[in-house]
Design a protein around this nucleic acid. Structure first.
Length: 485
DNA sequence: GGGTTGATTGTTCAG
DNA sequence: CTGAACAATCAACCC
């Protein structure tokens, strides 16, 4: 899928053909777009171009009506504070309404986190590749969810620091969760080439053909550029080629754990190589207790059983993230793995093997360039979460944070669970001022929006006055997520 | 040796 | 000839 800008939209982007009528402005990525089933068209006008140009997030051909790659399409990351005005004054990019933290921390956001929108896009496609403009509300929710991940990212420690684990793990992007859901719910429904399911179509699965191929390799000597390396024997032992009907062996607990964890790690660090992920997972695995490992295995079996059942609407994985992690509970996945005690452990006394792994090599750019600790906590999120899980750790909150949007997608009734706070109190700044008071140090000073004095609830005041104020957003099915921001 | 995932590379085949 | 589909391999680690 391509993402294209409407170049130089002369007027309101919302007037773009097919654009969401709720499009609020040139930077309203989440409304001002259109998806025709193949391409994602993003509203763009001169301001947007200016912004993009300033950030060099694309190949700098903004003057041409050319297609641009997806990566550039990200929430405005304005490394240069001088560009903040684009966010503050354009109002086009409604951070408050559209998934961006009210304290306008976006500009300070490190680059590596800017890939989330891209993930979002891929998520759109992950839904069986179906994406209709009519699904925008859902998409917007997803976007919102990603925004939550942004916050969690900020609140997350660096991966190369003692508390690193809380980062990648707690910052599981919701998109990643969705991705996993897809992976599980469909029994590799999207997977083009599941080992066993290799649709017996061209199925070379027959051993004869296999042998043919093998012999071909041997004769021609071409193929498998792996070449030399003395790996030959390896290819020969390739004789295997399991019988498609052969009952699959139970996957090892570690494999299951790997499957679950790698997705999270990858979600947080898309650039992580398999080796990196594997090491991290191994370290995590080491840190797991026997009980947790066993639990992982059990759950894996359960999941496996579930995935074997056709047409499961609810992803088996969901429980892992929807159930409030408890230290006493067996490993239910990442949540349990990163139990409060674990987190404490990592922060105070990083697991030897883990720290070894993490320090043994320069971690991925995206990891090492994680947000500074000063951006760790986004007050509203923290507050919102603490309301419902007062005793849960930040990590758990992060996990819950992720689960909220997930639930909102899967089960609206469940999503409502997070609404009471909003319903129980009048909308407006009251809630947020309360939040601000509880997080005196995490709002004002952190905000790159230098215009906001420290501790100022400017964003509170500003919120309702925005084009996309609460009144507006509350009309959308994202009001829940709105509260999150 | 088999399992985890995803990228890469090469081959095959259809249009 | 081109592109899609498929298959194999590799990475690090655990069982």
């Amino acid at each position: 899928m391509d993402v294209r800008f409407y170049p130089s939209a002369p007027t309101a982007v919302g007037s773009l053909p097919g654009a969401d009528p709720t499009c609020l402005g040139p930077l309203d990525y989440y409304h001002c777009n259109k998806f025709d089933g193949e391409n994602m068209y993003m509203g763009m006008n001169d301001n947007t171009q200016e912004f993009l140009s300033a950030n060099q997030t694309y190949n700098g051909q903004n003057e041409n009506n050319e297609d641009y790659e997806i990566p550039p399409i990200t929430p405005p990351n304005l490394p240069d504070p001088s560009l903040l005005h684009l966010v503050d004054h354009e109002t086009g990019y409604h951070s408050l309404c559209h998934s961006l933290p009210p304290n306008s921390l976006i500009p300070a956001y490190p680059y590596q986190n800017m890939d989330l929108p891209a993930i979002m896009v891929s998520n759109m496609l992950s839904q069986e590749g179906h994406l209709l403009s009519s699904q925008l509300p859902t998409i917007q929710e997803m976007v919102h969810s990603d925004a939550t991940s942004y916050d969690s990212n900020r609140q997350v420690p660096l991966i190369n620091r003692p508390g690193m684990l809380a980062g990648p793990m707690s910052a599981l992007s919701q998109s990643q969760l969705i991705s996993q859901m897809g992976m599980r719910s469909g029994v590799t429904h999207g997977s083009p080439s599941p080992p066993g399911s290799k649709s017996a179509t061209p199925s070379p699965s027959s051993s004869t053909q296999e042998e043919e191929t093998e012999s071909h390799f041997k004769v021609t000597g071409e193929k498998r550029p792996s070449t030399d390396l003395g790996k030959k024997p390896k290819s020969q032992k390739k004789k295997k080629k399991k019988d498609p009907n052969e009952p699959q062996k139970p996957v090892s607990a570690y494999a299951l754990f790997f499957r679950d964890t790698q997705a999270a790690i990858k979600g947080q660090n898309p650039n992580a190589t398999f080796g990196d992920v594997s090491k991290i997972v191994a370290s995590m695995w080491d840190s797991l207790g026997e009980e947790q490992k066993q639990s992982s295995a059990d759950q894996g079996e359960t999941k496996s059983a579930q995935t074997n059942q056709p047409s499961k609407m609810i992803p088996p994985k969901q429980p892992m993230y929807t159930m409030p992690p408890q230290a006493s509970s067996p490993y239910p996945g990442l949540g349990s793995f990163l139990s409060p005690s674990d987190l404490q452990n990592y922060r105070g006394h990083p697991h030897p093997s883990l720290s070894r792994t993490l320090n043994s090599k320069p971690m991925l750019p995206s990891i090492s360039a994680s947000p500074p600790p000063s951006f760790q906590i986004s007050p509203p999120l923290h507050q919102q979460l603490s309301l419902h899980h007062p005793q849960s750790s930040i990590l758990n909150q992060s996990l819950n944070m992720q689960q909220v949007p997930q639930q909102s997608i899967l089960s609206p009734p469940m999503a409502l669970q997070v609404q009471p706070p909003m319903n129980s109190s009048p909308p407006g700044q009251q809630d947020f001022s309360h939040i601000s008071s509880e997080f005196p140090n995490s709002v004002g000073p952190r905000s790159p929006g230098a215009s906001n004095p420290p501790g100022s609830t400017d964003w509170d005041n500003d919120y309702p006055s925005r084009e996309c104020g609460i009144n507006h957003c509350s009309m959308l099915p994202r009001d829940k997520a709105l509260y999150l921001t």
